[in-house]
Simulated assay, not measured.
Amino acid sequence: MTEPIHVAAPHREARPDRDVVISLSGAELAYGNRVLWRGLDLDLRRGEFVVVLGPNGSGKTSLLRVLLGQQQLTSGTLLVDGRPPRRGGDLIGYIPQQQAIAPQTPLRGRDLVRFGVDGHRWGFSSGGRRARQRVEELLAAVGATAFADVPLALLSGGEQQRLRVAQALATDPAILLCDEPLLSLDLHHQKMVADLVDERRRSHGTAVVLVTHEINPFLDLVDRVLYLAQGRFLIGTPEEVMTSQTLSDLYGSQVEVLRVHGRFVVVGVPGTHDHGGEPSA
């Protein structure tokens, strides 16, 4: 069965439609006979922080591709700021998964940020002095000025991620999409990047959709969790979704969720180590 499992949402005060920046209705994504998710309804509002969890192959990154206009839904509808999604533009900022950088790469930190400003990916075309000023503002905003002229290959993973956050913010986006932004980072740099993303959404009302294997670094920041697994999904607050009963229903087998020192530990997720806490049994 691929029917969704819905978690009752808490009562929310009605807001005008203009607050909704992403609206998925009856959304389905499938590859041939393999359904990643079906019947997905999700309205994301300005300033809201949604974390997407689930095992490998559940469609987490594919969801971001759909939101970016790079992939079509199999069925259902998607509106981004009231319009069908499209590639490029300045509405969405995107932080990709961290990738290894070849030692001989000549690019410096400021060059990476400049790509976002000049339109290499999501930016706009602008004059030289204006672009340089914007780059300096972005570097300062993420605390990267001190290493802006260092070659990328010589920077730590945390420093590189600061620069990717700056690049994603180059066009002052209303929506920030993040694909495993904490991958391979130590705890210190995880908190640093998580705080940067959260500060942006609080100060500018930017909506955040963040794909991750681990919810714990975001527990104090996230509004809702979208959990994808086996063609089904759960949507709700962390306290609603991250329970033994709800995850057992989602996977169709026994899953134990423990709360230890304020952290979720998930045990028994079938065939995967992806979840909200420590490695599964």
Rank of each mutant, 00 (worst) to 15 (best):
13 E>W: 08
20 V>S: 10
24 L>C: 05
25 S>G: 06
28 E>W: 02
30 A>T: 07
30 A>I: 07
36 L>C: 13
36 L>R: 06
43 D>E: 14
44 L>F: 06
44 L>D: 04
50 V>L: 15
51 V>F: 05
55 P>M: 04
56 N>I: 06
61 T>R: 12
62 S>D: 03
64 L>G: 03
66 V>Q: 03
68 L>N: 04
75 S>H: 11
84 P>M: 09
87 R>P: 05
87 R>N: 05
102 A>N: 11
110 R>A: 06
119 G>V: 04
120 H>F: 12
121 R>W: 13
122 W>K: 09
126 S>G: 11
132 R>H: 08
134 R>W: 01
139 L>I: 03
148 A>C: 09
151 P>F: 09
153 A>F: 09
157 G>R: 08
160 Q>D: 01
160 Q>T: 02
161 Q>P: 02
161 Q>K: 08
172 D>S: 14
174 A>Q: 13
178 C>Y: 05
182 L>Y: 07
182 L>P: 05
183 L>F: 09
189 H>F: 14
191 K>F: 04
193 V>D: 04
194 A>Q: 06
197 V>G: 05
200 R>Y: 11
203 S>K: 06
204 H>W: 02
205 G>E: 10
208 V>I: 10
208 V>N: 00
210 L>Y: 00
210 L>M: 12
214 E>I: 09
226 L>F: 00
227 Y>G: 09
227 Y>D: 09
228 L>E: 11
238 P>E: 08
246 T>Q: 15
249 D>C: 10
250 L>S: 06
256 E>V: 13
258 L>N: 09
272 T>S: 15
274 D>H: 14
279 P>H: 07
281 A>F: 14
281 A>V: 14
